[in-house]
């Protein structure tokens, strides 16, 4: 079962995000109001440790499980637009208290109205697919 490891990693993600309350609408509000360290601690720790891990993987040229070198793709260099594009995302993140991952964790938790949010997210993605050729990139 080649796919099982991805399901298990996903379960770990869902459990961790729910148990640390990172999927909480309230916690996201607390973050945007700078009234608690919780979310900054989570993201900050993940980024600092992540940076160290990525550095070590590159330094020691570590291969993945199938023996292929682990490759890192650079993000598009055309970056000024990221500020505008990112802020569109941010508007939705604060409104729903959920980025794409937590939408699904919350759904599993039993917050079925998240289905409406997910439907919206699929619609937004679809809309982007339609209009992207006319958008500045």
């Amino acid at each position: 079962m080649k796919g099982l490891k991805f399901i298990l990693t996903g379960i770990l993600f869902g459990v961790v995000m729910a148990k640390s309350e990172a999927v909480s609408w309230y916690r996201i509000q607390e973050m945007f109001r700078f009234q608690s360290f919780q979310m900054y601690g989570i993201i900050g720790t993940a980024v600092v440790l992540g940076t160290i891990f990525v550095f070590l993987i590159k330094k020691f040229k570590i291969n993945d499980f199938s023996g292929e070198p682990i490759e890192f793709k650079d993000k598009d260099k055309n970056w000024p637009r990221y500020l505008l594009d990112g802020s569109i995302f941010g508007l939705g993140w604060a409104l729903t208290g959920a980025c794409p991952g937590p939408m699904f964790v919350n759904l599993g938790y039993g917050y079925w109205p998240m289905l409406i949010v997910i439907l919206g997210a699929l619609g937004g993605t679809y809309l982007y697919g339609i209009v992207r050729t006319w958008l500045p990139h």
Partner: peptide, 13 residues
């Protein structure tokens, strides 16, 4: 809210 997240995340990559 969901649509903003979906559109923004794809536009921002």
């Amino acid at each position: 809210g969901g649509a903003l997240v979906g559109f923004g995340s794809r536009y921002a990559g």
